[in-house]
Structure formats: structure tokens, C-alpha cells
Design a protein around this nucleic acid. Structure first.
Lengths: 230, 230
DNA sequence: TTACTTATAGTCAAAATGACCATATATTAG
DNA sequence: CTAATATATGGTCATTTTGACTATAAGTAA
């Protein structure tokens, strides 16, 4: 049994990406509108086919870039979805990825198989094709869980951020209100943040200090786990 | 493009299971010895092919049962492994599952494509076929992480167990020593355990109380997450 | 009876948490 | 210039949780 050529697709396998963005205190999700095929005109998670020449991880990166213009971001496998009837035309198992991006850093470029690419508030998502709403739900639950045990949330912020922005991010993901003072104290003790010695600009109130996170500690905490009970 | 018949296999997709067991304070992993094919005589994770008629989850259950005789256990998807060269003959993406079983409750029955099925101490695993050592490593790391945030460890114990057994389980998984008194206090406050009002039997020392876990609280803690820092 | 093993309960200082309060520093309306 | 109003930043304090120990109880085995 020989493999087809490296750039022909594996019929039974696809990729779908659940991409979270954050802006103005709202958690968003990136969707594309299909331009062709049986799902033309409908909203969907960005995705596509895996080819013989690339790993599944590489396919996810490639597809995300070609559909939205986004590259070099936090992208991690979520789960394979393998119900026999999830895709109408034939049997396709899809490997879902989830990604965290700083929404402001990217301008969306719909790829040539997508007629549109747009951010949606995670609570105002339209009906999606196939089982994509299910995949999205799974991804959101996963993010909620993960953010409490690993410092992944930082991928959603710009490189330099204020403590309030960070707090609002956690509030948006976890859907709770947090005490400002206690939040700061907890982060202080984690030693995860480095004060940039800079101030916020163009705000109509006292400017907050800007922070970035310490990559060394970040890696340690991702491996060892942490507790972010709030 | 039509699908083949429901019981023919999807060429590009397989399943592999990382199955953890626990006995006498040791964490074990279940391996099978292949009886046929290019990997005959070598140890591997239990696995096989997915057919067109079943979901990926169903395939995992079916394969685990046919290879080892084990059914009705905690089985959850781990991750898809999709390196283009992971399988020598053709391009195959495998979906790995991990399972937790009480080793004493099952007698292993090697299926007809396996010549042997055996428990190995998780730290004394032989060289496995393909990328199975990698998959196993990933599964072990996953378990270590998960056990601290969800009460999944209980699936590795018999229905009724002593607090010392539970502690030894955590010690084996996390590779640490824990303080007995503090461990009990922490568990007491979680309200996860129910005292069976029975005593251990046939031990040559003071008999310990037997506990089972409260399924209601168990489900709550699995959803909401918990903190089991030790 | 004594040694040995594990069970189970309790102590106590240190650290962390949760619910507050107080003050500082900036902008803007009047 | 002054007051109103945003947000920043730091602090208090009672309560809870942790970590490191100590002490006693209840069995078996020699």
C-alpha cells in the first residue's frame, strides 16, 4: 500500500481551529464564512484538509495562516472529533486545535476559500456547520479549565499590559467578578510578572504600570502547574 | 465520493490506548505483544484500526476489549499523534486514549492478534514499536497533571479502599512522599469520601476503615475542578 | 508481655484568602 | 482653579489552610 503524493489530501482527516481573541474586556472567537462547497455562505471554524506531506500540527498552522493570515501563535491540539455522521458527505474525523491570540495584533485576511473572516463574541456565536458548535463548546470549556491551572491566558494579551487588563481577561474567561486588590496580591506572589517601568498612555485617568511576563517563570509554571483559584 | 462498507477500516486512522493500573503501591501500564504483522514479537500499546461504522470513541472501547478483555472503564481521549513518519508502511494518524483501571478487577485475556498482554511498572517499560514510547510518556505526564486537578485517581482503586491505599496511589503517580495526617485532613474537607462503616480484613495490624467516594461530589469536582496540591 | 505495624487524632506557627478600606494620581467638567 | 470622577496602588484584619510534627489507639506476632 503506497502513499499518494505529499501534497494530496488524506480523505478521512481534517483540521478545525478554535481561536480565541481578547479585546476591550470581551472574549471573542474567530469564524470564517465559507465561499464554496456544500457549506458556502455559512459560518464555520477555520479549518481544512491534512496532506500526506505534513504532520497534523503543521497542517493546523498552515491552514490557520492561509484562512486568516495569522501565524506564530499559541496553537495546541484540543481533541479529535470522530462521530461517524459528523460530516455529511463522507466519513471524516477532524482534529480540533485551539489557539490564543492578541486580537489587536492581527488584521484578518480571509483566504481564498473563505469569503469572510470575523471575530464573534464567544456568547453570540451563530449557528455553525456540522458539529462546529460542539467543538467550540468543548474548546471554551477547555480554556476555562486550563486557565486556572496554567498561565496560558497571557497569550491573549499584548506584550505589555496593565494589571486591570489581565484581571478583565480572567473575568471574561471565567465569567466572574474578581477583587482587584486580592488579584494583584496573588499575582505578585507568583513572581510571574515583570514591571516594565513604563506607564500606560492616552488614558483619561491615572496611568497604570505596564507589565510583561517572565518567560522563565512562565515555562516553569506551565510544566509544574499552578493554582489560580479566584 | 462514497464511503466503503461499515466494517472496513479507515486506512489512515488508528487507535492506541495508554492504560494505567495500580497494585501494591505501584503504577503499571498495560502492554500487548504483537502476534502478527511487521511488529510481531514486539511490545506495544493496545490498539488497532477504526472502521467506517463506529465513532472513534467506540473504536477505542471495542479494541481495548478485544485485545485485553477489559470493558466498562474510564477511557478518555488523550491526543492525536500525526507525524508523517510515525508509522513505517504508510501514513497513519493515531488517536491515543488513556484509561484508568483497578488492576485487581480484571484478568487479562490476550485477543487473537496479540500473543500476550501484561502489566509493566510504569518505570520499567521496554522499547515499544513506532512512537509508542512517546505516546506513553505523554499519557503519563497527562495523568500526573490531571490527578492534581480532578479526582480521577479513584478509578484506579477498588470500590472500597483505605485512606492509605489512596495516599499510596497519589504517591505513586506524583512520585512524592506525602504526610499521612495532612493528607487525611485535606480529603476530609473535600467531603468526597464516604465511610463505609466497614473495616479492612486479613491484615496483620490494626484494620483501617474502608471508604468509597461520593459520586455526586465526584461529578461536581470533575466539572468545577479542584486543587489537590500536596 | 513486648515489639512492631498501621490507624487516627491533635497541636501550632506560618502562610494564604476574602472582604474590606484608604489614599494617590490622573483627567475633565464647570 | 476646583470639584467630580475615574482608575491605581497599597494596607488591614479576621478566618482558613498549610506543613511539619507529636501523641495515642488498636491490632498482630514473637
Amino acid at each position: 500500500m503506497e502513499n499518494p503524493s505529499p501534497d494530496s489530501i488524506i480523505e478521512a482527516l481534517s483540521i478545525d481551529c478554535v481561536i480565541f481573541g481578547f479585546k476591550d474586556g470581551r472574549l471573542d472567537i474567530l469564524l470564517v464564512k465559507h465561499a464554496e462547497g456544500i457549506s458556502a455562505g455559512k459560518w464555520a471554524l477555520p479549518g481544512g484538509w491534512i496532506t500526506y506531506g505534513e504532520s497534523v500540527d503543521e497542517a493546523a498552522k498552515r491552514l490557520l495562516k492561509s484562512l486568516t493570515g495569522i501565524s506564530d501563535i499559541y496553537l495546541e491540539q484540543l481533541k479529535a472529533f470522530g462521530d461517524p455522521n459528523r460530516y455529511p458527505l463522507k466519513r471524516v474525523v477532524t482534529v480540533a486545535y485551539y489557539a490564543l491570540v492578541n486580537e489587536e495584533s492581527y488584521s484578518l485576511i480571509p483566504g481564498f476559500t473563505a469569503s469572510d473572516a470575523q471575530w464573534f463574541n464567544v456568547h453570540e456565536v451563530p449557528e455553525l456547520i456540522y458539529d462546529h458548535n460542539q467543538i467550540l463548546d468543548f474548546g471554551y470549556r477547555h480554556l476555562k479549565h486550563k486557565v486556572r491551572h496554567e498561565p496560558v491566558g497571557f497569550n491573549l494579551l499584548p506584550a505589555k499590559f496593565t494589571l486591570l487588563q489581565l484581571q478583565e481577561l480572567y473575568e471574561a474567561i471565567l465569567e466572574t467578578k474578581l477583587d482587584k486588590s486580592n488579584f494583584r496580591r496573588k499575582l505578585g506572589k507568583m513572581k510571574l510578572l515583570i514591571n516594565c517601568k513604563e506607564k500606560q498612555k492616552d488614558v483619561s485617568h491615572r496611568a497604570a504600570a505596564l507589565y510583561k511576563f517572565d518567560k522563565r517563570i512562565y515555562v516553569t509554571l506551565r510544566k509544574s502547574g499552578m493554582v489560580f483559584e479566584l
